[in-house]
Structure formats: structure tokens, C-alpha cells
């Protein structure tokens, strides 16, 4: 019996998979790899695989996490070697470790996501000015549309950091997880710059962030 925590990248076109698709894909890959995964008890047993916070459809990533419970001991290296060939191109395993002591679940502990957003090129100084303007606000009300209707949320407290990396790329550190989700495309659109188009969003990190702003990997 062991719990493996592993990280993986979502590359290329597979960034358009939904969280549900990803879940299904992993469950099938585990069967192909014949990994001895544990099942939940009960009438409708579920494989014990828990993905971290969902990536939004269209967002690529080099920092996704998941926990898997196995009914046998498995070395992290052996795990990576067994699972990788069973995955489709575009899902690349990055690391794995066995969780020894009781560790909080990914969903309960991850609260910070870092993104690099590529946009169509713009004057860097204009971009910087707009970002400074946004960060200067104490409240940033945003209408969030969902199938259930429109909800107004305040984005500002969930923007931990934002900076301009280049004329066509921005760095964002945003709240994620059980305490609330701020989506990178919302923040970019809240910059309110006409003709600014997002080309690609990549999640570059998921962290457990404390009140002082110190981050550590899950």
C-alpha cells in the first residue's frame, strides 16, 4: 500500500482536454499500465486517483499534480517508467514521490497558481502602466458568467502578483483551490486593453502559499 504523488505536463493540443477528460484518460492509462491502483469501498467503487485543481480548457501546463493510491508498494521511478508509455503524447510525467506521512490532499492544500500568458505583442511600457494601474486598485469587480447565471466577484484579493515579462508575455500569480479561483484570462481581460488578445496560457506552477507569501511545491 502506497500513495504516490506525481506531477505532469499538459502539452500541445491536449491542453483542450477538460478536467473530466483528463480524469478518464488517466483511469484508462492506469489500466493499460496495469498499475495496482486501489479502489474505494462501496457499491460503485472508484479508482483512487485524485487530480489537483483543474486546469481550464485551453491552458497548457508544466505543473499538474495528482495522488494515486496503490495496493502494493511501488518505487517512484518504477511508477514513472510504468505509467509514461501508457499515456498519450502530450501528457508528460515530470516527477513522482511516495507520500510517507499523512499529507493533506492536493485540493485542500494548493492555493496558488502561477501562469505565463502570451499575448499578441504590445508596447511594453503601455502594458506595464496598465498592470500598475490594476494592481493599485483595492477592489476589482468582475462579472463572471456561468451556465447558472452572472455572478460578481472581486478579483483583486486573489491576484497575488502580476508583472510584465516582455511585450508579449505576462506573469501572474493567482489564488486557486478551495478558497476561490481566479482565472488568468479574467485578469488579462480586466486590464481593459483594446485589441489585447491572449495567444496561449501556460500554468507554470502550483503552490502551497502561506500568509507571508512564501510558496512551496505540494
Amino acid at each position: 500500500m502506497s500513495v504516490i504523488r506525481f506531477s505532469f505536463a499538459i502539452e500541445g493540443r491536449l491542453r483542450f482536454l477538460s478536467h473530466l477528460d483528463l480524469q478518464k484518460m488517466f483511469n484508462m492509462a492506469i489500466q493499460r499500465a496495469a498499475l495496482p491502483i486501489a479502489y474505494s469501498q462501496g457499491f460503485n467503487p472508484h479508482p483512487q486517483l485524485a487530480l489537483g485543481p483543474a486546469h481550464a480548457v485551453g491552458v497548457a501546463s508544466v505543473a499538474e499534480y495528482a495522488d494515486m493510491e496503490l495496493i502494493k508498494d511501488f518505487s517512484p521511478e518504477g511508477f514513472l517508467k510504468t505509467l509514461q508509455p501508457a499515456l498519450p503524447q502530450g501528457i508528460r510525467l515530470l516527477s513522482a514521490r511516495a507520500l510517507t506521512e499523512k499529507t493533506p490532499a492536493l485540493m485542500a492544500s494548493i492555493n496558488c497558481a502561477v501562469y505565463v500568458v502570451k499575448v499578441n505583442g504590445l508596447e511594453k511600457t503601455i502594458l506595464e502602466a496598465k498592470v500598475a494601474e490594476l494592481l493599485a486598485q483595492t477592489e476589482l469587480l468582475w462579472q463572471r458568467k456561468s451556465p447558472k447565471g452572472i455572478k460578481t466577484v472581486d478579483l483583486r484579493p486573489g491576484i497575488f502578483e502580476m508583472k510584465v515579462l516582455a511585450a508579449n508575455s505576462l506573469f501572474l500569480e493567482l489564488r486557486i483551490g478551495n478558497t476561490g479561483n481566479i482565472k488568468p484570462d479574467e485578469v488579462i481581460r480586466a486590464l481593459n486593453i483594446e485589441n489585447l488578445a491572449i495567444e496561449i496560457i501556460e500554468r507554470t506552477g502550483l503552490y502551497i502559499r502561506d500568509e507571508q507569501g512564501n510558496k512551496r511545491e505540494p
Binding site: G12, L14, F16, M25, M28, P88, Q89, E199
Partner: peptide, 23 residues
């Protein structure tokens, strides 16, 4: 045509059905 098609996929419903690349 990947760059061109991928640029419109965010605008459609359930883009995952158009990805190919299945195992």
C-alpha cells in the same frame, strides 16, 4: 494547419472532440 485551427478551438464547444492524438 495546427496553429490556425488551434487558435479557433477556444471559441468552440467541447474542443476535445477535435483533438486527435488519442492513445
Amino acid at each position: 494547419l495546427a496553429p490556425l485551427i488551434e487558435s479557433i478551438l477556444p471559441l468552440v464547444e467541447q474542443p476535445a472532440q477535435y483533438l486527435g492524438g488519442e492513445y
